[in-house]
């Protein structure tokens, strides 16, 4: 298992009263994403626990792409991963951010 941490500049802060949301399931080849409001000065913090070791550069690329599309800030994103492929990760994050923001951002 590997623990990875990333930060991104972020965009419009999400409402601090948004309830935490859990999206997806930690099943084989899948991941769960917990999104919570956090006072991070507008930034986005991502913490990943993954069963697949050695893919830090790919996580960086996928997450940078997601948060370039989702201009949101002041959120903490926690991911438990059981070997999801990059495409599944990107789609699940889109779903999680949509769930958390009520569909738009």
């Amino acid at each position: 298992m590997e623990r990875l941490e990333y930060e991104f500049d972020g965009g419009a802060p999400v409402a601090p009263r948004n309830r935490p949301t859990l999206t997806g399931v930690l099943g084989s080849g899948n991941l769960e994403v917990l999104v919570e409001p956090a006072d991070l000065g507008g930034r986005v913090r991502v913490e990943v626990q993954t069963a697949a070791v050695g893919f830090g550069a790919i996580w960086q690329a996928v997450l940078a792409d997601v948060f370039a599309r989702w201009q949101v800030g002041d959120i903490r994103v926690s991911i438990n991963d059981a070997g999801a492929t990059p495409a599944v990760v990107a789609l699940r994050l889109d779903q999680a951010l949509s769930d958390h923001t009520g569909g738009g951002a």
Partner: peptide, 22 residues
């Protein structure tokens, strides 16, 4: 005990396996 409470399995952590938030 919602997911954000992060009450996860201590055993899976010892076995170096990802543990679900709930």
């Amino acid at each position: 005990v919602p997911p954000e409470a992060r009450i996860t399995s201590p055993h899976l952590a010892q076995l170096n396996q990802p543990a679900a938030f709930d």
